Simulated assay, not measured.
Amino acid sequence: MATSRGGRSGGGAAGRVLGYLESRKNLAGSACGVVGLGLTLAGVAGAYWPVVVAGLYGAGALIAPPERAAPPPFDPSEELDVLREDFARLREYLGEVELPEAAGSRRAGLLELYGALLEPGWVAEVLVTEPEAVHALSRAIRRDVPECVDTYNRTRWWNRLTPGGESPERHLERQLGLLFEEAESVTADLREAEARRQQTHTAYLEERGRS
């Protein structure tokens, strides 16, 4: 057991040493140290050449830019795959709850629009290039719609015990209507992005034709 731990520890230390030898700091320090050796051979450093070489090495290591870890690669399409799974769970959940007729029609229209935006194909390829649109869709599917339905069911139960006040059904219908308007806005923004892309290509072709 002790031998195994020692082997791993030694391997880790060796890896750190090798990493430093390949680092920018060591390379920059070594380059400056070579300059110090050149000064020594030229007779400039004199008897203090070890101090000169070490000092130049240290100076080079200090001014070298720090090592920077590369950020992990993220595939935006993977986010849509996960969002599609959450959307499927949302549809299953909404299929099990009882909603008033007006809110039910709002729910159907909202789910149809979400489904069209998330359908694999060129529309989703446009969607994935717009992070704000993906965020708005994700927020609505994972939080807003479930919260609307859940608070409606709880408020309706309390309203049966103590009637009065604003209708929970009216609130739910309004909430789903606002979410539908937001989804329409997201769709309009995506359409506008495609229109700008088309206009840019037209301008490019016109400019190329003039040249």
Results as ranks from 00 to 15, higher is better:
73 P>H: 08
14 A>C: 04
165 G>P: 07
92 E>A: 15
49 W>C: 02
60 G>K: 00
8 R>F: 14
57 Y>G: 02
137 L>Y: 03
89 R>K: 13
76 P>N: 09
99 L>Q: 00
5 R>T: 11
96 E>P: 01
50 P>L: 04
86 D>S: 15
7 G>Y: 11
172 L>F: 02
187 T>F: 07
128 V>N: 04
173 E>M: 03
25 K>E: 15
75 D>K: 08
153 N>G: 10
105 S>F: 12
135 H>Q: 13
11 G>T: 09
197 R>F: 07
194 E>Q: 15
15 G>H: 05
147 E>C: 04
191 R>W: 08
8 R>H: 15
161 L>T: 07
45 A>P: 06
71 P>Y: 06
2 A>T: 09
88 A>W: 10
139 R>A: 14
178 L>T: 09
111 L>M: 09
80 L>S: 00
148 C>S: 15
84 R>Y: 06
59 A>W: 06
157 W>Y: 14
185 S>W: 14
179 L>C: 01
166 E>H: 07
114 Y>D: 05
25 K>F: 05
89 R>V: 03
66 P>V: 05
24 R>I: 00
109 G>N: 12
76 P>T: 05
110 L>M: 10
208 R>V: 06
190 L>F: 04
97 V>F: 03
4 S>C: 11
17 V>A: 13
133 A>Y: 03
2 A>Y: 08
53 V>A: 02
40 T>A: 15
73 P>R: 13
118 L>D: 00
91 R>H: 04
161 L>M: 14
126 V>Y: 01
14 A>W: 00
75 D>L: 10
112 E>M: 09
147 E>N: 11
67 E>Y: 08
126 V>T: 11
26 N>T: 07
112 E>N: 09
37 L>W: 09
19 G>R: 12
161 L>P: 05
27 L>V: 13
108 A>K: 08
20 Y>Q: 05
194 E>S: 14
64 A>F: 05
44 V>Y: 09
112 E>K: 06
32 C>A: 15
124 A>S: 14
174 R>F: 07
204 Y>F: 11
87 F>K: 01
160 R>P: 03
11 G>D: 08
197 R>V: 03
142 R>S: 06
163 P>G: 07
85 E>P: 02
8 R>C: 05
152 Y>D: 00
22 E>H: 10
113 L>R: 12
211 S>H: 12
167 S>V: 03
189 D>C: 06
180 F>T: 15
36 G>Y: 01
200 T>C: 10
206 E>T: 10
48 Y>F: 10
93 Y>S: 11
167 S>K: 13
194 E>D: 07
83 L>N: 01
16 R>P: 01
52 V>Q: 03
201 H>K: 04
34 V>P: 00
33 G>E: 01
59 A>K: 02
16 R>I: 10
167 S>F: 04
103 A>T: 00
175 Q>I: 00
160 R>G: 12
21 L>F: 12
193 A>C: 04
138 S>F: 06
41 L>Q: 08
209 G>D: 12
14 A>G: 11
119 E>Y: 10
46 G>W: 15
91 R>G: 05
26 N>M: 07
187 T>G: 11
176 L>P: 02
107 R>M: 08
162 T>H: 14
204 Y>L: 14
124 A>M: 02
112 E>F: 09
195 A>N: 09
150 D>G: 06
49 W>H: 11
168 P>I: 01
103 A>Y: 00
45 A>G: 05
128 V>R: 07
40 T>E: 10
